[in-house]
Simulated scan of single mutants.
Amino acid sequence: MNHDDFGVPEPESLTAMGAADEPIAESSVRLALPAEADAIGEIQVAAWRRSYDGLLPADVLADLNPAQFAAQWRAALIAPGEARNRVMVALAGRTLVGFAAITASDDPDSDPRHDAVIAELAVDPEATRAGHGSRLLNAVVDTIRADGFSRVTVWVNSTDDVLRSFYTEAGWAPDGASRELDLYGDGSVRVKQVRLHTDPSTED
């Protein structure tokens, strides 16, 4: 996840003229298309390289392959499975600058009928500080509400104060749950995460 796009959103401009002189929204959020999987993979790798800097070895981050991520996203977009599995994208004009993936929660203490989870939310590090993360989060919560979920959660690294502040300033709060990820499966690199939650019915 990218964590720099957590300032006060800029006022949304009205329109920008496209190549064919068609007005397009300067910033918008919508459901992702399979053709956008490559751009999503590129953004995820760029965001992970920033987010996990200092947590993962530099060579591991350098070896992250956008094409591999893109292949997984393309498959998920073509065959999402349950109807409430969704990927949303943030756009600056026609340029994809961020994405979020939402699904029913599979946490042991959650009820997938009522609990959703933001599995991933990332903004291109080159497009931060323009309000895209806030617009994306607002659209995600609106979608979760429309899909009938009554609770939504997200896991954040315990040391990531910026990301945690982004969510808490938007009305989210810790729910007391935590977990430790064993990134390599051999105990050599562990990352502690805490869970935040909100009631989508109370979000504006």
Rank of each mutant, 00 (worst) to 15 (best):
L121Y: 00
A104V: 08
D5Q: 12
M1V: 08
K192S: 14
V140K: 03
I144R: 06
A76D: 08
Q72T: 12
N138M: 08
L181S: 11
S13M: 13
A47Q: 04
W155H: 12
A46P: 00
A177P: 04
A100C: 04
A19Y: 05
A16Y: 02
M17L: 15
V152F: 08
S188F: 05
G7L: 11
E169Q: 14
R145Y: 12
S105E: 07
D175I: 03
A122M: 10
A173L: 04
E12S: 14
F99K: 02
E42T: 13
F166W: 11
P112C: 04
S27Q: 11
R113G: 13
H132R: 05
G41W: 05
P66A: 04
G81M: 11
Q72A: 12
L61W: 02
F149P: 05
A19N: 02
P34N: 08
R190V: 13
A39R: 15
A47E: 06
A90G: 02
G54V: 02
T153E: 12
R94I: 04
L56R: 07
G81E: 10
Q44W: 06
F69A: 13
V117C: 09
T95V: 15
L181W: 14
V45D: 02
D21M: 10
G98P: 00
L55G: 08
P174A: 04
L96R: 03
L14A: 13
D53E: 13
E10I: 12
H197A: 15
G148I: 03
V162A: 15
T128I: 15
T95Y: 00
L61C: 02
D115W: 00
P57R: 05
E10C: 06
A20L: 10
P125M: 09
L136M: 02
D161M: 09
D63Q: 14
E26M: 08
G7M: 06
L55Y: 07
A101C: 12
A58M: 02
T143I: 07
G18L: 06
A32G: 00
A35Y: 04
A75H: 10
P23L: 00
